[in-house]
């Protein structure tokens, strides 16, 4: 049942952050539809290498949709056309022979391009440094069952915690907002009793850091939710806003 397809690729090539980039066209023939999208790029890269050309740089690691390292805008959509799917889990069976596929890096001021499709997402780490944790040192934690947490709350927290930090939300937002990413982390901890003591401080610090790093504001376009490979809900943004306003009003942390 194996089927092969021939496709045309228009891929963004850029040597580094300081020079201008542009699209280059490549033809990939005999691509098995069982290949993942990244395996297809591997095949193109093997040929480029043998032809004495510079292979396409792209970030990737686990190739099973969980590390969040891969990602590119494919035909205008972050991680390509499949819902709830990272680029590494997108398979070529979703394309047809004769297709032209346009591949670009994430584009956001806060994510400078390193080379070709690889970008620098360390701004996400900085948002977490600002407060994306519960301040507990190793040792001395009470018994794990000391505080019961309802299954519903635990599941909601898990929904938010499933974020892989890939940056698709930023790349798909017209304002390059990082609110889905930030909202998911703030929500995870705000929902759990362990995270409540610092909830106000956390919301203020993370939101301020996000603004400082040149991420835009949420305009309720909901593109992020649609493109998120882990289908993180924008209700997390609403929860973040509530936490943020509550924190702003509460005198304890003002």
């Amino acid at each position: 049942m194996t089927k092969n397809i021939d496709i045309t690729l228009k891929i963004w090539r850029q040597k580094n952050a300081d020079v201008k980039g542009g699209f280059e066209t490549y033809h990939a023939s005999n691509i098995s539809i069982d290949m993942s999208f990244l395996e297809m790029i591997d095949v193109v890269n093997e040929q480029l290498t043998l032809d004495g050309k510079d292979p396409i740089a792209f970030d990737h690691d686990c190739r099973e949709g969980i590390c969040g390292m891969c990602g590119a805008v494919v035909n205008g959509r972050a991680h390509g056309p499949e819902k709830g799917t990272t680029l590494c889990q997108l398979h070529m069976r979703h394309f047809s022979s004769g297709d032209t596929i346009v591949i670009e890096p994430w584009r956001a001021k806060a994510f400078p391009i390193i080379k070709d499709l690889a970008v620098d997402r360390s701004a996400f780490d900085q948002i977490i440094v600002a407060g994306g944790y519960i301040s507990v040192n190793t040792g001395g934690a009470p018994d794990a069952n000391a505080i019961p947490i309802s299954q519903e709350i635990a599941e909601k927290a898990m929904d938010a915690a499933a974020c892989i930090g890939c940056g698709a939300c930023v790349a798909s937002c017209p304002n390059a907002s990082a609110m889905l990413f930030t909202g998911a982390k703030i929500s995870q901890f705000a929902l759990l009793p362990q995270g409540r003591p610092e909830a106000a401080l956390r919301a203020l610090a993370m939101v301020r850091k996000m603004d400082e790093l040149c991420f835009g504001n949420c305009g309720n376009e909901r593109e992020c939710e649609v493109e998120c490979p882990k289908e993180i809900s924008i209700s997390n943004i609403a929860r973040m806003n509530r936490e943020f306003f509550k924190a702003g009003l509460g005198s304890a942390v003002m």
Partner: peptide
């Protein structure tokens, strides 16, 4: 114990 204190949403 430590992981629960860190806010890891284990199944319940």
């Amino acid at each position: 114990d430590h992981c629960v204190a860190q806010g890891i949403p284990f199944a319940r």
